[in-house]
């Protein structure tokens, strides 16, 4: 890895660590009775209301349709995600220290898999809350109606318009991934350039050696 790639990988780790502090995803809920909107913010380790008491309000409203109360402590993935993210941050730092291109590639691969799994978990969670209703105690029953918010985009759920969008945390994670990818690209390109230069240099050296020895030329390149 080039020095630049190592620095970039470390920077990516720091940016990723920032995702601990801010929400990853946001769900806005708008209704005629809630022109100011209610909101859910999904963090790496919790789900909370956007407003001071939004989570309780949403839970209170959801009892009408038989939806389970959203209890962050009862969502297993929220217990795992901080560890996964932490491992990825530590991994990036380790890669930066070790400076091995293959490790960087492996880290990016793990990152992509974790991201895909995370999104899938989120989708499954939304689907479970939206569909797995307590129909016996539901007060409002609309045949065929389910209430999962969209993964991304807007959807009408009875009187509520649910708008689901990535939040700053996901943007940070995306930026970190792109930086990591660029670091890999930079290292690969540098290695390739070095190899090519090595090739050119050695033929030139051969040419030169046939005439006179040139101590100037030092082979260069990555590991």
């Amino acid at each position: 890895m080039t020095r630049i790639a190592r620095v970039l990988t470390a920077v990516a780790a720091l940016i990723m660590a920032g995702a601990f502090a801010v929400p990853l995803w946001q769900i806005r809920l708008l209704a005629p009775q809630y022109p100011e909107g209610l909101g859910l913010l999904i963090h790496v380790n919790t789900v909370r209301g956007a407003g001071h008491n939004d989570l309780a309000s949403i839970n209170s409203l959801n009892h009408y349709i038989g939806m389970k109360a959203i209890d962050p402590a009862a969502i297993p993935v929220l217990h795992i995600m901080p560890w996964v993210l932490g491992a990825l941050v530590v991994g990036a730092l380790a890669v930066a220290l070790a400076g091995r291109r293959k490790l960087l590639a492996a880290w990016l691969g793990a990152y992509a898999v974790a991201a895909a799994l995370g999104l899938m978990e989120f989708w499954k969670w939304e689907r479970d809350y939206g569909r797995n209703l307590d129909m016996e105690n539901a007060i409002i029953k609309v045949p065929g109606m389910t209430y999962e918010p969209p993964l991304i985009g807007a959807k009408q759920l009875l009187n509520f318009t649910a708008i689901s969008l990535p939040a700053l945390g996901t943007i940070l994670l995306g930026v970190a991934f792109l930086i990591g990818a660029y670091a890999l690209f930079h290292s690969v390109r540098a290695a390739r350039a070095a190899r090519m230069e090595e090739g050119t240099a050695s033929s030139a050296a051969n040419d030169a050696a046939s005439q006179a020895t040139s101590p100037r030329l030092q082979p260069a390149g990555g590991h």
Partner: peptide, 10 residues
Amino acid sequence: FHVTNIEQDW
């Protein structure tokens, strides 16, 4: 009757 409105919603 001590009644509390336990809502926390405007």
